[in-house]
Design a protein around this nucleic acid. Sequence first.
DNA 1: TATGAATGAGTTTTCATTCAT
DNA 2: CATGAATGAAAACTCATTCAT
Lengths: 183, 183, 183, 183
Amino acid sequence: MAVFTRKGFGEATVADIASEAGVAVGTIYNYYRDKHDLLISLIARSLLSANLSEILGATEATSDKKIIESLIEDRLEFGLANGQRFLFLFFEIQRNSKLRRQYLSQVVAPIISRIENLLQSGIKKNSFRPTDIKIISRALAGMIIGVMILRGLEQKDSPFKKSRSKEITKELTNFTLYGLVKK
Amino acid sequence: MAVFTRKGFGEATVADIASEAGVAVGTIYNYYRDKHDLLISLIARSLLSANLSEILGATEATSDKKIIESLIEDRLEFGLANGQRFLFLFFEIQRNSKLRRQYLSQVVAPIISRIENLLQSGIKKNSFRPTDIKIISRALAGMIIGVMILRGLEQKDSPFKKSRSKEITKELTNFTLYGLVKK
Amino acid sequence: MAVFTRKGFGEATVADIASEAGVAVGTIYNYYRDKHDLLISLIARSLLSANLSEILGATEATSDKKIIESLIEDRLEFGLANGQRFLFLFFEIQRNSKLRRQYLSQVVAPIISRIENLLQSGIKKNSFRPTDIKIISRALAGMIIGVMILRGLEQKDSPFKKSRSKEITKELTNFTLYGLVKK
Amino acid sequence: MAVFTRKGFGEATVADIASEAGVAVGTIYNYYRDKHDLLISLIARSLLSANLSEILGATEATSDKKIIESLIEDRLEFGLANGQRFLFLFFEIQRNSKLRRQYLSQVVAPIISRIENLLQSGIKKNSFRPTDIKIISRALAGMIIGVMILRGLEQKDSPFKKSRSKEITKELTNFTLYGLVKK
DNA sequence: TATGAATGAGTTTTCATTCAT
DNA sequence: CATGAATGAAAACTCATTCAT
């Protein structure tokens, strides 16, 4: 995965990958049909690695703020852990329809749906402003994704460092809850 | 660009591209040094939209809300116009250091910097909550980027349709300004 | 074809073939999908090379002896011209069902059928002994095939030399007509 | 042998063969030096049928007809038993000089020589027409080989079925002795 | 200036063979 | 003595690039 991420699918050679993995070229072909199958398998594996279930399963008892905070924190950490990989993953997921369906149904849909529930109940409780739930849920999910991508692009210049993880989570949570404007 | 976007750099063949462009393979080499030069030239061309400079140059007289709205609207339209291309652009930009420097200095930095100014002055005027400007500026830029990517992934199921462009801009602007919580 | 015949399909390398043909490896792939397609195309081409039509179209006016003689002579010359190729052709034809169907319908069936007609009319005219036409037609066709194969196997030791072509044809024709036993 | 016959030497993989034989790949290498040695050993084993020696050793007392009949019958049965294998055997024998020498000296030469003796003595006894012994012996041996090959090619459509073995032998014997022409 | 066939370097892929278990 | 995973040499195949037309 490191090689694919660094070079892209077409530019990563099987020899590169074998060498990075410390095995012979032929060994790879004992486990994967071909180079593409290798990529798909690797992606499928990293897709499901997150401990999403905890967050998604959080009880109603937990405060809205806590849930949003956990979500941001979890995805932020996933992003930090996956670093450069992020864009590559998205790009390949987008191009492979089977992978896309899997990712949409197993990762995107549950998260979006969880956020929608959150918004819905918040609005019903009159604690959240009435908004277009479908759009705002994507805005929140998108914000996390976009922040990770900017981090990858800016690299050394980015303010998104692991060390500041707590603070970033706090800021993003507050931004999400209160926006820019002072009450 | 359509072929690069659909297949990725390594998998797009010069023959594909020539055929899509309706010219012979050899003709491409009369205009571009090599395949990589072709990609770089194409990307460099799509980086900047005409409107961006106007928005970035907007006078202080314009209201904060208007500026945010214009920015969201412009990038949203860029994203809708570039569709699937979005991720590919980011991915290739990330991998090509010359391109990355160019993109960071010509697109990301001005936008981020404009947003930072906006936040700074808003906070000074006491109309915005005091926040970590570096983080929140990335949150806003990231939100727009992430929203475009989700749109590309979800495709038919996404609520981000061209037809609803006005409404989406409004929702995102309000979310940015006021957050989720009701005052 | 020379390389395939000399080495067999699996042992002939595309580099060998390209070098023997005096072109680059890549050039072969501009004309044939893959190595197997190359073989099939070559075989299909040599299958239909014979001037069978003349013999098969011979009028009834020609004497039975003349027809048999022409047939033996033609296939004998085809065999001498194709030399070692003979067995390889048969082997590959046998293994490729499309090729087999083509060979059976375009070469074997017409020849067998012509021989059957010949036998039938000869028996009716009472000039030929009554025999099982289906078996004897194969015996005659098979004799020619087998003789060619023995020639390929025995190589230097075989009595089937080009120089003796006329005499061989005469002997085989007489054997076919009169058998071993003296009247 | 089944795998070699079905696929050809180069296309048969040792894994195929091991799997068909119900052993592990490594086991094969405990008994044969390499893949080629395996093939040579298998072919050498199938070359000789038990009956051949009896026929070849038949005393002068046996009638010419009986000898020819036995020979045809034996090789016919060998062909029926070896089916598709036939062509493959010939092809590989042709290509392997050691194998070719062995086959020529142990199978072809004795049969041809036996037939030549038969013809010679028949001609001397004035019961056979005077013919070119070298050619006619090959015609007879070739007929049997060719008939087997046609049978393999035609498969379902061929009149050479096991069930008709007796009749086929009779027809071929009569054809050999008396030819087509009625006395 | 456009073309596209030829090229061959660079990759992917295969699979006979080895050898530790 | 059997096993089968690992190996890497050798082969198939791809395709960016060239260049004569």
